[in-house]
């Protein structure tokens, strides 16, 4: 493994770490304050395409170390896509089968990618009506598979697995601290399983308790895959409000328009959750004026072309001869 020449013996050596961090890129044209440095940490440059590489690897390694996978026992996991894609690709490469239980409403691209990565797909209708504290359909279906067929499936369960947090304590946090030379004042993240926010915040606040951690969430009833409104956070045991300073609610459609602006203004092919995080950062920069901010951009736009067509007028037309 040589991070200088970037020659690796297998794909797992490319996974991010303090020595091999995901890149951070400065926001130039779209930064509203010259006195506020703003960087985007591009998680889609991880080998399996998203921030979820970190949690997936940590969860899989733990299962391997405990001997809970192998000999015909694979994985089942509820996922809105990215964790499943990372887990399926990793699992397949290491010889385990993987069943991904996904909500019907995730973009078609993600469903197809899961199959390409080798997952058996279980699509469930997830959107009846939120029930208090009970988790949603895909989580319960995955739990059912794991319970009814324990010899066949281990369930990493990203919503409750501490490895999802520890992955970011071990990698994302130290990477940012080192990349910013300790100058970071603001961290901007979105909320999904909350592994990223809890782990990165835990590390960074350990280094400097004054760092402000800003979580950006879409408005209720949103259509941004992978994210949760605070009212939906009951399902994530990993959310720790003491590690978050501000929770901003942003109109979910801005996730799509800001993603488009990032593509066209900064050359960053960022996905809608990144667009949402950027909008949150923009609002905080206008409030705080000075600082050094890092946004964790979870994935790129390629998996969301069908969602972009739905939310950006014009993208769906003029595509035929």
């Amino acid at each position: 493994m040589n991070h200088q020449t970037r020659v690796y013996q297998d794909v797992f050596e490319m996974l991010p770490s303090e020595e091999n961090p995901s890149p951070m890129v400065r926001i130039n044209k779209m930064n509203p304050s010259p006195e506020f440095e703003l960087y985007a940490k591009l998680e889609w440059l991880n080998p399996f395409g998203s921030v979820k590489d970190r949690a997936a690897w940590a969860m899989l390694r733990e299962l391997e170390e405990k001997g809970e996978v192998g000999n015909g026992r694979g994985l089942v996991e509820p996922t809105s896509g990215n964790t499943g894609i990372s887990l399926a690709a990793m699992a397949k490469a290491r010889g385990y089968h993987m069943r991904a239980v996904v909500p019907n409403k995730i973009p078609l691209e993600k469903k197809v990618l899961l199959k390409i990565a080798g997952a058996e797909l279980d699509v469930v209708n997830d959107a009846l009506c939120p029930a208090p504290g009970l988790g949603d359909g895909s989580i319960n279906i995955a739990k059912s598979h794991a319970k009814a067929q324990a010899k066949k499936y281990a369930m990493p369960n990203q919503y409750e697995n501490e490895q999802n947090v520890l992955a970011h304590v071990r990698t994302t946090g130290p990477e940012i601290w080192r990349q910013t030379e300790g100058k970071v004042t603001h961290l901007f993240v979105s909320l999904g399983t909350c592994g990223t926010v809890s782990g990165t915040s835990r590390f960074l606040k350990g280094k400097n308790p004054d760092i402000k951690v800003v979580a950006v969430q879409p408005t209720e009833g949103h259509d941004v895959p992978g994210l949760r409104n605070v009212s939906q956070l009951g399902v994530s045991r990993l959310f720790d409000s003491s590690l978050v300073d501000d929770i901003l609610e942003v109109e979910f459609k801005l996730a799509y328009t800001r993603a488009l602006e990032l593509c066209q203004g900064e050359g960053l092919l960022a996905g809608p959750s990144s667009g949402l995080i950027y909008e949150g950062a923009r609002e905080i920069i206008l409030r705080d004026k000075k600082g050094f901010g890092v946004m964790i951009f979870p994935d790129n736009i390629f998996k969301y072309t069908s969602n972009m067509m739905k939310h950006i007028p014009g993208l769906a037309t003029g595509n035929e001869a």
Partner: peptide, 11 residues
């Protein structure tokens, strides 16, 4: 169930 996938997954 409204969606018998749940039953099929384990009952």
């Amino acid at each position: 169930d409204v969606d018998t996938k749940a039953y099929d997954a384990g009952h």
